[in-house]
Simulated scan of single mutants.
Amino acid sequence: MVSLSGIPMDAAAVMSSVLEGILYGFSVLMCLGTVWTFTYKRHMQDVNRPIAVVAALLFVLSTTHIIVVIIHLEHGLVDYRDTFPGGPVAFFADVTQNTFVIKNAIYTLQTLLGDGVVIYRCYIVWQSVWVIILPCIMWCGVAASGVCSVYYFSQASVAEIENFFGSRIGHWVATFLASTLATNMLSTGLLAYRIWTIERKVSAVCTTKRKVPVLRVLIDAAVLYSAALGSSIICFALWNDGLYVMGDLIVPIVSIAFYMVFIRIATSQNNQHYLSTVRGGTTETERGKLQQHPMQPLIHRPNDSNFSLGDSPKVETHPFA
């Protein structure tokens, strides 16, 4: 059995495992960087617990996923190479294998966690439940389609395995990919728009502009994740088995996108605080403010009685948490 892309399924499995291992290595390094930003010159009570929990969950899920992928690869190429009907190619095409179902269940959980973080950030910045009602509904759609796809993987018939893209399994997978892409883009768009409007109002009255590239960080992370999802959707539209490869790669990409946002914002803020502290031209007033607020928020309301942001929230030092 050869895939529509001309690449045997066993070769695709090896390719996805190697590429995921590389991305997993990057995610581990970035996870260590996140831990460093948590602990560097800080007490345990100052640690942002919600972000610490999310970072730990992302690491656990991505680590578990790559372990299951390695076991799946070992089963197909070693344990059942000579006993499975059709050999390794047929084994890796069989979506009912326990290891295949488990790794896709982990992928679903990783996606739900990543999308949930973006929605949570959106709520923190907007400080309004009404804004996230639609993203939350869409997130529930992602959860439903993900659960259904994993269930139908485990219950797939021989005909559905041979005609994966045209079967109900393929339809659920396409729904899952499209819904998570739409949810992520909508939530990121709302988040970026809110930050942009607040920064524009603040910069209109501030004598100096802050150089924290919040929007750029968010956009970079969104582009990275959206590119991976878009590639998966294109593979599905072309009935290309590269979809299996992209499915494994998205798991570490979700972790990388989260760590990237946190590290870049936290590092930028720490650098700004350091420069403001050691700069020779810093005035006594500025030094007094720095002593009172050693980690200034990304966006703050200026002391101007004629200026008002209404109920605009502050974006705190920890990124959106």
Score class of each variant (00 low, 15 high):
Ala228His: 01
Pro313Thr: 13
Pro50Thr: 09
Thr277Leu: 14
Ile137Met: 15
Asp220Phe: 10
Val202Lys: 08
Ala192Cys: 11
Ala174Leu: 15
Phe320Cys: 02
Gly281Thr: 14
Val18Met: 07
Arg264Gln: 10
Gly310Cys: 04
Ala237Cys: 03
Asn163Met: 11
Lys103His: 02
Gly141Thr: 04
Thr96Trp: 06
Ile119Met: 07
Ile263Asn: 11
Gly33Cys: 01
Phe92Lys: 06
Pro50Gly: 10
Lys103Arg: 14
Asp79Gly: 00
Ala55His: 08
Gly116Lys: 08
Asp241Ala: 12
Arg49Met: 14
Ile7Gly: 00
Thr108Phe: 07
Leu23Pro: 00
Gly116Leu: 06
Ile132Lys: 01
Thr64His: 04
Gly242Met: 07
Ala182His: 05
Ser226Trp: 03
Thr285Arg: 15
Ile263Tyr: 08
Ser157Thr: 14
Leu191Ile: 07
Glu199Asp: 12
Val173Asn: 08
Tyr274Cys: 06
Asp94Tyr: 04
Ser276Pro: 00
Gly170Leu: 06
Thr208Tyr: 14
Ile299Lys: 05
Ile219Lys: 04
Phe262Pro: 00
Val53Lys: 08
Gly189Met: 09
Arg121Asp: 02
Val158Ala: 11
Phe307Ile: 05
Met30Trp: 07
Thr208Asp: 09
Tyr40Met: 12
Leu249Phe: 03
Gln269Ala: 12
Ser308Trp: 13
Gly21Tyr: 04
Glu74Met: 07
Gly33Arg: 04
Ile66Tyr: 09
Thr207Gln: 13
Gly86Arg: 11
Arg301Cys: 06
Leu243Thr: 07
Asn98Ala: 12
His43Leu: 10
Trp36Cys: 03
Arg194Asp: 00
Gly114Trp: 01
Thr39Lys: 14
Thr39Gln: 08
Asn303Asp: 14
Gly33Gln: 03
Ser154Phe: 05
Ala144Val: 13
Asp115Lys: 04
Val202Tyr: 05
Leu224Asn: 03
Leu298Arg: 09
Thr96Lys: 12
Thr108Trp: 09
Gly166Trp: 09
Asp82Ile: 03
Ala90Asn: 13
Ala144Trp: 12
Ala144Asn: 09
Lys289Val: 01
Ile51Gly: 01
Ser308Thr: 15
Thr175Trp: 10
Asn270Ile: 04
Ile161Glu: 04
Pro294Gly: 11
Val251Glu: 01
Thr64Val: 10
Leu218Val: 02
Gly76Ile: 02
Leu177Tyr: 08
Asp82Gln: 14
Leu58Tyr: 07
Phe236Val: 03
Thr208Val: 11
Leu23Gly: 02
Gly310Leu: 06
Ala90Thr: 06
Thr180Gly: 00
